[in-house]
Simulated scan of single mutants.
Amino acid sequence: MNRFWRGRRIPLSWLLLTRQPVRLLVALAGISFAGILMFMQLGFRDGLFDASVTAHRLFDADVVLISPRSASSVSMEAFPRRRLVQTLADPDVDGVTPVHWGLMLWRNPETRRNRSILALGFNPDDPFFVDPSLAEKTDALKQKGRILFDQLSRPEFGPIADWYRDGRVVETEIAGNRVRVAGLVSLGTSFGADGNLLTSTETFLDLMPQKPPGAIEVGLVRLKPGADPEQVVSRLRQRLPKDVSVLTKQGFIDFEQNYWKSSTSIGFIFTLGAAMGFVVGCVIVYQVLYTDVSDHLPEYATLMAMGYRLSHLLGVVVREGFYLAVMGYVPAYMAGQGLYWFVRDATKLPVGMDLSRALTVLVMILVMCMLSSFLAMRRLIDADPAEIF
């Protein structure tokens, strides 16, 4: 028993932190606030990138053709439709789907206000989505003037989904033309488009008569089983003229995400916001640990005079920083989950907690607290027992 008590370490770091509960709570509140700020900024940034390619991921395609003049999904340029037909000459190509892509003015049937909505036009008989439940709904588009409305669109477009589920006939106008909602789909909004609709090629060209029928914005190419998309892309790039860009499906997704990452300031702003949260947390933790070390300088000096090594006392400060990081992360994580749910409900953006972001913020908080601990150690390193006493 005596050996047990002699070998038992006194939890000095924990006792120092809990000696003043009010100071501890203030420190944890500051760390949690910094963590919440990092969670929200990184969540908005990643949600932006994920939302921008929601429709892209659903396309039934292995290779995608777009115009080299296209910048993003909100500014797609047209290219000759015959380029898509020419891809059928490749032995690995199994089928193609031409897609019309553009923004239209949707009239809210309740408020009569107009708002831009992203419209995709295609042949309902062609494979379009990899999700079978979405593919089954496209038969309703064979009748002219029918559309499928994205029920995840923002409420500014009107209570379309509620009316349709209630059995009402939902009709409105697009660019002055009458259309009827023939079904609902779930695609999701993005920073570029607050809502989406699907329609047939015939209806799309009626709604946008200025679009030449021989031009399309996106060409979907499906390959035979076992074909290598990279090799097909390489061959098509050599055979097709330079008025069309050939990409793999993942390349098409990267094309869209790179636009928001590099061509806009949104990604930089959210990353800067996360960095500011990191700096704020560092200042708070440093102030708490520096004050704690300063208040206990006589005790630290006494321990040094008794023969305790400086490295042992520095370890006390490091453990204090570790305890603060762990205790501050838990409420930040829980608050982040709640705020993500609130943002998803209010904006329809795919903002959610994932393991990668949770670990990223945890590491950032640990680094933040460890860095502050090392900075606060300078006060302890400079402590001279002779001067203190």
Rank of each mutant, 00 (worst) to 15 (best):
W163R: 15
L198T: 01
S262H: 13
V218L: 13
Q250C: 01
L236W: 05
Q143C: 02
G167D: 01
R235F: 07
D254E: 13
I174K: 11
F252H: 09
I253F: 04
R178Q: 15
R168E: 15
T189I: 12
G267W: 09
D139V: 08
L272K: 08
R235E: 06
F204W: 14
G188N: 08
D139F: 06
D166H: 13
S186G: 14
P229L: 04
G188V: 00
S200Q: 00
P155K: 09
F204V: 02
D254I: 03
R235Y: 04
L272G: 13
L272I: 13
G195L: 09
R154C: 05
V169I: 14
A140Q: 12
S190P: 08
F204I: 01
E171L: 00
M208P: 00
R154E: 15
G192Q: 13
D243E: 00
Q250D: 10
Q143M: 07
V179G: 04
V221E: 03
P155V: 09
V218S: 04
L184F: 12
G219F: 05
D254A: 12
S262A: 11
R178F: 12
V185Y: 05
R239T: 12
L207I: 06
G183T: 10
A175D: 14
E256I: 09
T189V: 15
R154Y: 11
D139P: 01
I269C: 01
D150G: 05
E171C: 07
G145W: 02
F149C: 05
V170H: 02
L240M: 04
G214E: 12
V218D: 02
A193S: 15
P159G: 05
F149E: 04
Q151F: 07
A227G: 04
P159I: 04
T189R: 11
L272M: 14
A175R: 07
I269S: 12
V232N: 00
D166R: 15
K249L: 11
F252D: 03
V185R: 08
L207C: 03
V221S: 08
Q238D: 13
V246T: 03
N177H: 14
S186R: 15
G167M: 06
P209A: 00
K249R: 15
G158P: 03
I253P: 00
T199H: 06
V244R: 10
M208V: 15
Q151K: 13
Q257F: 07
F204R: 02
G273R: 10
Q238A: 14
E217D: 10
L184T: 10
Q257C: 03
Y259W: 14
Q238E: 15
L220Y: 06
F270S: 06
L152T: 07
L240I: 02
L236D: 04
V185P: 04
V244C: 02
P229E: 00
K142I: 04
T172N: 07
A182Q: 11
A182E: 14
R235P: 04
G219Y: 01
K144M: 06
T264E: 06
L247V: 01
Q151W: 06
T271V: 10
L197G: 05
G195I: 10
V244M: 06
